[in-house]
């Protein structure tokens, strides 16, 4: 039973959390990659857009909870998601109108967009803190666990338990649905195809009569949906705090670049690569090895490669390695 126990510990502390986190990062990275593919700049306001989406959803969730509406065992936030997406869509469309459109008309250099996105980041950050404050907010309700440690132990009779939280299950299901919808949209619909054409070769796309403003608008709508879903899922899984969303910028960018900027498949792969390395490198493997190794070889220390505070270092190191060895990313970026 020892190897089985080791496997359960590994599942419980590494694989399940990393999968959920990876799905959240992948959704975030998809947004970054879409903006990069169509608008051709790295959007530094992305983390704060996620925070805004999550905030809008939280506010509506509280309203629903106050009105006595619940979603059974599922968190009420899922019901509020469409409202959050709509609010975020309105915000990013207004931002695009007020800020980015001018630079598009000017055909400004990408780095000017990036600086403009810094300004947008400040404003969104201020807006979120202004409306909901800088503190932690909890908004998860419904059933907490799909399987709790105790039921799992009772079911299997093992020494170690496996807990799967509802938020983790939902993250995966929602992420799969969102990604499936996105790929269906990009590959099967006319608008999606025109987006890919625009991303591949802007001039050619314009020649064949694709309306660039429409492509840009659809992109922002997709980005609003992706960021809100990512932000809400992250908030459900951990907790909502504006500053952590800002800090997600680094792993999200790392995921997008590792996968290949502009490549949606790459963004998903990158998200999981970053998440698994972050969790794996900062997890203390003492217990797992304790089950696997014979008595004499049992480790004394925690067998933790890096303390959890260095999780940013992990995404960074992976990023640097990829930049040095394969600057275009795992999936050859720069096309949708």
């Amino acid at each position: 039973m020892e190897p089985l126990n080791a496997l359960i510990v590994l599942l419980n502390f590494v694989i399940v959390p990393a999968t959920a986190y990876g799905a959240q990062l992948a959704l975030g990275a998809l947004g970054v990659t879409l903006i990069y593919g169509i608008l051709r700049f790295s959007n530094f306001a992305h983390g704060d857009t996620m925070a805004f989406g999550a905030m809008a959803t939280i506010l509506f969730t509280w309203f629903l909870q106050g009105a006595g509406v619940t979603f059974g065992p599922l968190p009420t936030a899922l019901l509020a998601l469409p409202v959050g997406i709509a609010a975020t869509a309105a915000l990013v469309l207004i931002t695009d109108r007020a800020v980015y459109k001018f630079y598009r008309a000017q055909k400004a250099a990408p780095v000017i967009y990036v600086i403009a996105s810094l300004g947008v980041m400040f404003i969104m950050n201020g807006l979120v803190r202004f409306i909901i404050g800088p503190n932690d907010q909890r908004f998860a309700d419904g059933e907490r666990f799909i399987i709790s440690v105790r039921t799992f132990k009772a079911m299997t009779g093992l020494d170690e338990g496996l807990a799967i939280r509802t938020s983790q299950g939902i993250t995966l299901v929602v992420a799969i649905i969102a990604v499936a919808l996105l790929f269906w949209f990009l590959n099967k619909t006319r608008t999606g195809k025109s987006m890919r054409a625009f991303s591949d070769n802007e001039d050619l796309a314009l020649l064949s009569g694709i309306n660039p403003e429409r492509v840009v608008m659809v992109t922002w709508l997709l980005v609003a949906a992706l960021t809100t879903v990512a932000g809400v899922l992250y908030g459900l899984d951990k907790s909502f705090k504006p500053f952590t969303y800002f800090q997600l910028l680094l792993p999200i960018f790392a995921a997008a670049i590792v996968g290949g900027l502009g490549n949606p498949l790459g963004a998903i792969a990158g998200g999981f690569v970053i998440a698994f390395s972050e969790v794996g490198v900062t997890y203390a493997f003492k217990k797992v090895l304790g089950y696997l190794l014979p008595e004499t070889l049992k480790p004394d220390g925690l067998v933790q490669l890096l303390s959890t505070d260095y999780k940013f270092a992990v995404s960074f190191v992976i990023l640097v390695i990829v930049l040095l060895i394969r600057p275009t990313g795992l999936f050859r970026g720069k096309s949708l």
Binding site: F41, S42, F44, P110, V111, V114, Q247, L249, L250, F253, A254, I257, L261, Y310, F312, A313, S315, F316, L319, V320, L323, P327
Partner: peptide, 14 residues
Amino acid sequence: SDYLAIATLGIAEI
């Protein structure tokens, strides 16, 4: 140029 931005963002956090 974006890569330098991300790299410096990362090193600052580290």
